[in-house]
Design a protein around this nucleic acid. Structure first.
Length: 394
DNA sequence: AAGGAGTCCAACCGCTGTTGT
DNA sequence: GACAACAGCGGTTGGACTCCT
């Protein structure tokens, strides 16, 4: 054993900076298939030149299927302010009350918007009730320096119109936590907080690591333990098919394209079997996906010709391909009833073209993709305020 | 139109807490 | 108890973008 703590990764060997769409897809595909049991080993297994920490951050803050993007509603902002009042800079705890929101996102919104609002709202009415400061957990007080004394709100718990929260009104979580406006309301003693969301309880029941609400509690594909267990317990093809089905459990509705992609990973039994090996260190089975060069090279070539789309579109295409779209759209004489159909068609067509199986020329396919997605962007529904949040703010 | 200032946010860094040996 | 390994958290940074002059 060497002295001291080894660095998490060799900084000279890892890529840094913004993630490319191809890297995102590699990460998504790998996690969908294998979960994230070990972030440190994940980049190697997935063939990513990234540090595990970076992969984890990217997944949690951006790629998780249930991550909610877009502006914060007024209700959410007010709730954040109130939670910050109680919890201080415990961003992950605050984030745990906003399924789909990440601690990083909340931290950003606080630093960029809410922190500025506070002095305006409070300095006129509450004249520095500094005694309340002590109620903030000591760990958070250090970073409160950016919020002056007047920024710390007084004890007027009713400013938001609520002395308590109605936990009963929280809607039951769906299998997929799409109800992202749902708030999980803090108990007075947040340290004794239990999962109030059935989804959390589900995860808690199957995962030994529930300390990070922004990751494991919220992600429903991140229960890597069970997924890896499955893959370890069922190393044969039949069981791999079973595993594939499980991996796709999150994708309701058409998932042909995802399935195709993942089958590309799964398919070459001879390759995969040849590359299954025991990890040098922990002697656990790890898939050596980096050996599947054809597949990943295809991804990389996609990144050059096609994946320069904004990440959002690609990620949404992969992860939210079941999202309903109530308007049918007509493109090129074909009617598509939802976003996923169009996206699946685009993916399929492009993969066809990449594989030389298509009838049309490549540029046409890309042009169709760009055109369709521009149209889809216009179709995006404005976010509706959630009744539960509305009740919170009233 | 140009460019400086301000804003936003994804990503990084370093520390802490937890777990296993 | 000591130590190593790891995940997670909170603070900070840097680049892209927008606004203003």
């Amino acid at each position: 054993m060497g002295k001291g703590r080894a660095p998490c990764c060799d900084k000279s060997q890892v890529k840094r900076g913004p993630w490319s769409p191809a890297e995102d897809l590699r990460l998504i595909t790998f996690i969908q298939k294998h979960g994230h049991d070990n972030w440190r080993a994940l980049p190697k297994q997935a063939g990513l030149l990234r540090c595990g920490k970076s992969c984890r951050l990217r997944w949690i803050n951006y790629l998780r299927p249930d991550v909610k993007r877009g502006n914060f509603t007024k209700e959410e902002e007010e709730a954040i302010i109130k939670l910050h009042e109680t919890l201080g800079n415990k961003w992950s705890k605050i984030a745990s009350h906003f399924p789909g929101r990440t601690d990083n996102e909340i931290k950003n919104i606080w630093n960029t918007h809410l922190k500025k609002k506070l002095p305006l709202k409070n300095c006129d009415s509450t004249s520095g009730d500094e005694s309340k400061e002590s109620s903030i957990t000591s760990s958070s007080s250090s970073s409160f320096s950016s919020t002056p004394a007047c920024g710390k709100r007084g004890s007027d718990q009713t400013e938001l119109g609520h002395d308590h929260f109605d936990e009963e009104s929280a809607p039951a979580a769906a299998k997929r936590p799409c109800n992202n406006n749902q708030l999980i309301i803090p108990s007075q003693d947040d340290d004794h907080e239990v999962a109030k969301d059935p989804k959390d309880q589900l995860v808690t029941s199957t995962s030994t690591s529930t300390t990070s609400p922004s990751s494991s509690n919220v992600s429903n594909v991140s229960n890597s333990k069970t997924q890896l267990d499955v893959s370890r317990d069922y190393p044969h093809q039949e069981e791999e098919n079973y595993q594939m089905d499980n991996l796709l459990f999150d994708f309701e509705g058409p998932c042909d394209v995802i399935s195709d992609i993942l089958q590309e990973v799964n398919k070459p039994d001879s390759i995969l079997d040849d590359h299954k090996s025991l990890d040098d260190h922990d002697q656990t089975w790890v898939p050596q996906l980096e050996g599947d060069y054809d597949f990943w090279n295809m991804f990389d070539s996609l990144s050059d010709a096609f994946l320069q789309q904004p990440n959002d579109q690609l990620v949404q295409a992969v992860l939210h391909n079941s999202e309903p779209c109530h308007n049918s759209i007509n493109f090129g004489g074909e009617e598509y009833h939802n976003k996923s159909e169009i996206e699946n068609r685009d993916w399929f067509r492009f993969l066809e073209s990449e594989l030389g199986l298509e009838g049309n020329d490549n540029q046409n396919q890309q042009a169709i993709f760009y055109q369709d997605h521009q149209s889809l962007a216009m179709e995006e529904k404005p976010e509706e305020s959630d009744p539960f949040l509305a009740s919170f703010s009233n």
